[in-house]
Simulated assay, not measured.
Amino acid sequence: MSSPAQFTTESAVLAASVGAAVLYQSLVRSPPSFPRMVIKTASTALLSATSFLRGGPFLLVGALGLGSVGDAFLAWDDETSFIFGLASFLVAHILYILLFLQNGPGGMDDFNIKVHTILSKNWRAAIAGALALLVPFMISQLMPRIGKDLRAPVVVYSLVIFVMALTALTLQSSQVILGAVMFTSSDSILAAGKFLVPASSGHHAWMHHAVWVLYYAGQLLIALGFLSL
Rank of each mutant, 00 (worst) to 15 (best):
D77A: 11
R54M: 13
G67V: 05
S48P: 10
G67K: 06
P31G: 14
A42H: 10
T41E: 04
L64R: 09
F34C: 01
W76R: 13
P35H: 11
L74Y: 01
D77F: 00
T41C: 11
F58I: 14
L74N: 06
L53Y: 09
L46T: 12
A72K: 07
P35A: 10
S81Y: 02
A45Y: 12
F34D: 00
P32C: 01
L47K: 11
I39R: 10
R36S: 07
K40W: 06
L66E: 00
T44I: 10
G62Q: 06
P32Q: 05
E79H: 06
S48M: 08
P31S: 14
M37I: 08
T41V: 10
P35V: 12
R54V: 03
L46D: 11
L74S: 02
V69D: 00
T41G: 10
F58Y: 10
F34V: 15
G67E: 01
V69S: 00
L60N: 05
T41S: 14
P32A: 08
T41D: 03
S43E: 09
T80Q: 15
E79T: 12
G65K: 13
T50W: 14
K40H: 13
T44M: 07
F34H: 11
D71E: 01
T41W: 04
V61D: 01
G55N: 04
A42Q: 08
A75K: 01
S68L: 08
A75E: 01
F34N: 04
F73A: 05
G67W: 01
R36V: 04
A75H: 00
A63L: 02
D78A: 04
T80E: 14
W76M: 08
L66K: 07
V61G: 02
D71I: 07
D77Q: 12
L64Y: 03
K40R: 15
D78M: 01
F73R: 05
T80S: 14
A72V: 05
V38L: 15
W76H: 09
G56N: 03
I39P: 10
S43C: 15
G65M: 13
L46P: 12
S51M: 09
P31H: 12
P35D: 09
V38D: 04
S30E: 10
G55L: 02
G62N: 07
G65L: 11
I39F: 03
A45Q: 12
P32M: 01
L59V: 08
G67P: 03
P35C: 11
L47S: 12
T50V: 11
L60F: 05
L60A: 07
E79L: 05
A45D: 07
L66T: 04
D78F: 00
R54L: 10
L59N: 04
G70W: 00
A45N: 09
G70N: 00
T80R: 15
S81K: 06
A72R: 07
E79K: 12
V38M: 14
R54D: 08
A63R: 05
A63M: 08
P57M: 09
A49W: 09
L60S: 08
P35S: 10
D78V: 05
R54P: 02
F34W: 15
V61S: 06
G65P: 12
T50N: 12
A75P: 05
V69W: 02
P32F: 00
S81H: 14
S43H: 08
D78K: 04
S68K: 14
G62V: 15
A63V: 02
G55R: 03
P32E: 03
P32Y: 00
E79G: 02
T44R: 02
A72I: 07
